[in-house]
Amino acid sequence: MNKTLPDTAMAARIDAILAQLNTVIFGKPGPIRLALACLLARGHLLVEDLPGVGKTTLAHALARTLGLQFQRIQFTSDLLPADILGVSVFSTERKRFEFHPGPVFSQLVLADEINRTTPKSQSALLEAMEEQQVTIEGTTRRLPEPFFVIATQNPQEQIGTFPLPESQMDRFLMRIHLGYPDAAAERALLRGRDRRELVEELPAQVDAPALLALQRQVTQVHVSDALLDYLQAIVAHTRRPGVYRMGLSPRAVLALLRAAQAWALVDHRDHVLPEDIQAVLPPVAGHRLHLSESPGLAPEQVTRRLIEAVPVP
């Protein structure tokens, strides 16, 4: 196909990352690709699914493959902001307060079951995500670079949870679902080695500077006027009165474009196609759009309708 990425080394690196991830999580090339694109677009990822479908494995595998430090925070109802951000403790030896960084000071943070903690703790993490820095006791501390949060939540559990408000859902570039593996993938899983062991053995395919270079390359992916016409037509459609409760915000549009660029890069292209927009529209817009009528419609249906309503110029 039309693989015109100038730097073949970059393309090879992306392929290696994808290949390695696919050896750990079977039968989910789509979500894996989206997760990688999300990371390359410097966005955060929300995985919404049942327990045990491989959310943690995905996060862990991503961290290993990309050579990132990894921390997992299990969100519970008694979690405090300090448990995420860190705390200053008085050192009797040195006679002064010393800051003990919390798990958030990691390159890849897995925030497990984020909807089970209180809004106060949720917003501690979400603010860190937005600003790439943490302010504790008057001191502002930068978070490591790159910084990537994968949050998970279980949509089935309702009792004792604090669902994220829409404004905070907006902080996540994408929301994806993993879903059950198909029979063949499940068979391979059953036959294969223990995932946990396997993940521990994964070698890093890129180092931090190479990853940052990939992230920079995303912004270089060419966006033509024709593509912007299409993107704006989609946005304009969501803002027509009466169809959606809220149209897509400028932040959402930027997210859509950035995600499409990353998607094109993962596909080894140096320019964005309408296909890219259509591919990233469900995970990017799904958690941001709600129809005014028939609010119960699944997000996939909503974005499907949106795609079908806007002609490609």
Binding site: L273, E308, V312
Partner: peptide, 9 residues
């Protein structure tokens, strides 16, 4: 071609 169908698809 459906109006919303992108060229490569």
């Amino acid at each position: 071609r459906a109006p919303h169908e992108p060229p490569m698809d």
